[in-house]
Design a protein around this nucleic acid. Structure first.
Length: 282
DNA sequence: AATCCAAACAACCGCCTAAGT
DNA sequence: CACTTAGGCGGTTGTTTGGAT
């Protein structure tokens, strides 16, 4: 039968996005939320294929994305996750919520792959993974995903940090009544895009203030910087499906995950230890 | 200053899967 | 159950950028 093209090839613009297009897309998503990408080009007048719109949003315009140099910490995490999961960039990205799969993939292909090829210190120290070990790792991955999902669904717990509750509430309300609250949910996207488009636009588009946000523009940058503290929550608010992929929106499992990964090269039977002991305690 | 080349990264392409009809 | 479609994913390509000559 053959799959039809996702969009008409005629009249579809390709190549780099312009700031104007970015603003149109962000403005639209602020009002309607991400999703129904097929309708986006029609409703916005963008001469872009719906896939292109989605990719532009998820890889560049989406709130909470950290750009720029990868830290050593992130680098190590990627190396270990790649060894564990292979080229499943989306899965790897779920452990680094501030980074996109595309970003990680690019970084791997341009930096880490070569680094590992030339630096025997890392690659040769890793023993080949036996089938049994690999299966245990996979099981562990599934456990992690399940736990992350459970945690994400239990933000009502008394010990849940206020920040988590706030974003969880925000996420829920945006799903239940998109028209009234979506602007709040995507307010951070305006901050994001205003940073991205810095120098092109004098003022960021007017957006209703987030309930916790101070309207003082002088504090704008501080709020933007503080996003990093709650980025997991923002992610869950905008892309709730991510949690099913094993994203650790909750700090604790992520930290344990990192400990687990970094301890892996030191410990012997890593899979056994992690799968049977530590993670079972979650 | 001009040219070349490699690195970096944004974006595209095609395949796959889940959900809807 | 078969088919369609939207969305997600990984591989690849094209463009830009910066450094070397």
């Amino acid at each position: 039968m053959g799959r039809p093209p996702c969009c008409d090839k005629v009249g579809v613009k390709k190549g780099p996005w312009t700031p104007e297009e970015d603003i149109i897309l962000v403005t639209y998503i602020q009002g309607h939320g991400p999703g129904n990408w097929r309708a986006v080009p029609t409703n916005t007048g963008l001469l872009r294929c719906n896939k292109s719109c989605r990719l532009r949003w998820t890889n560049y315009l989406r709130p909470g994305i950290k750009r720029g140099n990868f830290t050593d910490h992130e680098e190590k995490l990627i190396i270990h996750l790649q060894a564990l999961l292979g080229n499943r960039w989306a899965a790897i990205a779920s452990y680094l919520p501030e980074r996109t799969d595309n970003d990680i993939k690019n970084y791997w292909n341009t930096h880490l792959k070569k680094k590992l090829e030339t630096n025997d210190g890392i690659s040769s120290s890793r023993q080949p993974i036996s089938k049994g070990q690999w299966e245990r790792r996979l099981q562990t991955d599934i456990k992690m995903a399940k736990q992350a999902l459970r945690d994400a669904l239990s933000f009502e717990k008394p010990d849940c940090p206020p920040e988590l509750k706030y974003y969880y509430t925000l996420a829920n309300s945006s799903h239940s009544s998109a028209s009234s609250t979506s602007s709040a949910t995507y307010a951070s996207s305006t901050e994001n895009i205003s940073r991205l488009l810095e120098g092109w636009i004098k003022k960021s588009p007017a957006v209703p203030a987030m309930s916790r946000a101070n309207s003082d523009p002088a504090q704008h940058s501080d709020q933007t910087n503080n996003l990093g503290d709650s980025v997991f929550c923002i992610e869950s608010a905008t892309t709730p499906d991510v949690s099913t992929e094993g994203s650790s929106e909750v700090q604790l499992p992520l930290e344990l995950m990192e400990t687990w990964l970094f301890d892996e090269c030191i410990g012997g039977d890593y899979g056994q230890e992690i799968g049977d002991l530590q993670l079972d305690e979650f």
